[in-house]
């Protein structure tokens, strides 16, 4: 990980702009910022560690505790999706997965997050699962998507995805 971070740092000449790109990689690969990596970044960027921590905790796509789940489900709860029934989509997800928003399922497979507008309001309601957008959702469609993801071969190696 540190090697890959160094590549990013180099491409920004170890300037502070490298911080967000580094945090994106860390989130994707490790599911959150660990103390060790935070200290490493602080040293490389010549910043106080608290500065790295404060940036990581400011943005909703980064977490400062490691939270891994195979599928990060981001449900848009902004007005246009709400008008088209995003609350019903969340209800189905909570019920099907047995978790609330902000929680990881016991098998570490699912994490639900309520997010602001995903820029697909013409096809509301929408959600992102990892990097794929699902639109024109209905409760039935959501049940179908979730059951497909649940049924996958469980021996498949977990790819870690950023929150």
């Amino acid at each position: 990980m540190k090697e890959r971070l160094k590549q990013i740092l180099n491409s920004y000449h170890n300037q502070r702009e490298a911080l967000l790109p580094c945090l994106h990689l860390i989130q994707k690969e490790e599911g959150g910022l660990s103390e060790e990596i935070a200290l490493f970044l602080a040293k490389e960027l010549n910043l106080p560690p608290v500065e790295v921590y404060s940036v990581a905790s400011f943005y909703s796509m980064f977490t400062v505790k490691q939270q891994k789940a195979k599928y990060i489900i981001r449900v848009c709860v902004s007005l246009p999706c709400y008008l088209k029934g995003s609350d019903k989509i969340l209800e189905v997800l909570h019920k099907e997965l047995g978790i609330n928003s902000g929680e990881v399922s016991a098998d570490k497979k699912f994490f639900i997050e309520e997010v602001s507008c995903l820029g697909a309001c013409g096809k509301a309601p929408v959600m992102l699962i990892n990097e794929t957008l699902y639109d024109n959702l209905t409760p039935e469609k959501v049940r179908e998507i979730i059951s497909q993801l649940k049924d996958e071969n469980s021996t498949e190696e977990y790819s870690q995805t950023g929150l």
Partner: peptide, 10 residues
Amino acid sequence: EGEPGTFKDR
């Protein structure tokens, strides 16, 4: 682009 209801730039 983040203003809820805006999806033109995408």
